[in-house]
Computed example of a mutant assay.
Amino acid sequence: MHNSDSQSPTGTPEGAQTELSGAELDALNAKVAELEASNKDLRETVLREKAELENQRRRLHRDLEQARRFANEKLLNDLLPIYDSLERGLSVEGGDVNAVREGLSLTLKELLRIASNNGLVQVDPVDQPLDPERHHAVSMVEAPGKAPGTVVTVLQKGYVLNDRLLRPALVAVAKDD
């Protein structure tokens, strides 16, 4: 037997409409309003978070720029007494050569102390084997009693800043006999 009632794919007869009761319609409208309010709150939260991230990025950029501009402040502040000492030494009229030499020696010691406190170390490799990573050989010289490749003379000291070579030492090296 064949049923002559035609039905839609959803299983409800064609032409029949589903009527929602007033209470169901009110409940659905309330749910829609609740979801819209929640959506609005989420959008506001996202916008606030986005603004906060942008503000943090700007602050970080400003702080980084300030750090770059004033990175040398401590070092330069430490160097000011040396600058003052050199100016005082140059302003003295006449004077004993030995006193000037002693003043320069003390100023150099203070300069080396400040440099050392800021991570700078001198490379003075006399009597050490040539290290191509830290030394630059500019000549080979006769050096009786020295092993070949040993640094005999330092023409210009090298410097290392916090374990990184800043300038290699220029050296003369003992050559083979």
Rank of each mutant, 00 (worst) to 15 (best):
L47A: 15
E24W: 07
G95F: 03
P13E: 06
L53K: 08
N98P: 01
L166G: 03
V100H: 07
N118S: 12
L60T: 14
S21L: 01
V141R: 01
T10M: 13
G149D: 06
V151W: 11
S85L: 05
V126R: 15
T10P: 00
H2T: 11
A172P: 01
G95Q: 03
T45W: 15
L20E: 11
G89D: 04
V46I: 13
T150G: 05
T18C: 07
N77W: 05
S91I: 07
N77I: 04
A172G: 03
A27L: 08
E52G: 09
I114F: 07
R88K: 04
A143P: 01
N29Q: 12
F70P: 00
M140H: 12
D41W: 01
R62G: 05
A115S: 14
N117L: 10
A172F: 02
T153R: 15
Y159W: 15
Q66M: 02
D41T: 14
A23S: 08
A37N: 12
V151T: 06
S4G: 08
A33D: 14
L130P: 06
L25D: 08
E34L: 12
S6L: 09
V141Y: 03
D131K: 04
L165Y: 00
P81W: 00
D5R: 01
L161S: 03
A51Y: 03
A143T: 09
A147D: 08
A115E: 11
S91Y: 04
D26P: 00
I114K: 00
K31S: 04
R58H: 04
G149P: 00
L35H: 03
V123P: 06
V46H: 07
N77Q: 10
N3C: 05
R57E: 13
L47T: 15
T153Y: 10
V92I: 15
A172L: 05
L80C: 03
A174P: 06
G149L: 02
L120K: 01
R167I: 12
T107Y: 08
V171Q: 02
E87H: 12
D163K: 11
G89R: 07
A16C: 09
A147Y: 00
L130I: 01
D78W: 01
L25G: 09
L170Q: 12
E102V: 05
E93V: 14
L161H: 03
D63L: 14
A147F: 05
A16E: 13
A172N: 11
N118G: 11
E36Q: 12
L90E: 12
D41R: 14
N55Q: 15
R134L: 15
Q156I: 06
M140W: 05
P148A: 14
K157P: 09
N55L: 14
P13W: 07
E133G: 04
V126F: 13
D163W: 04
S8M: 13
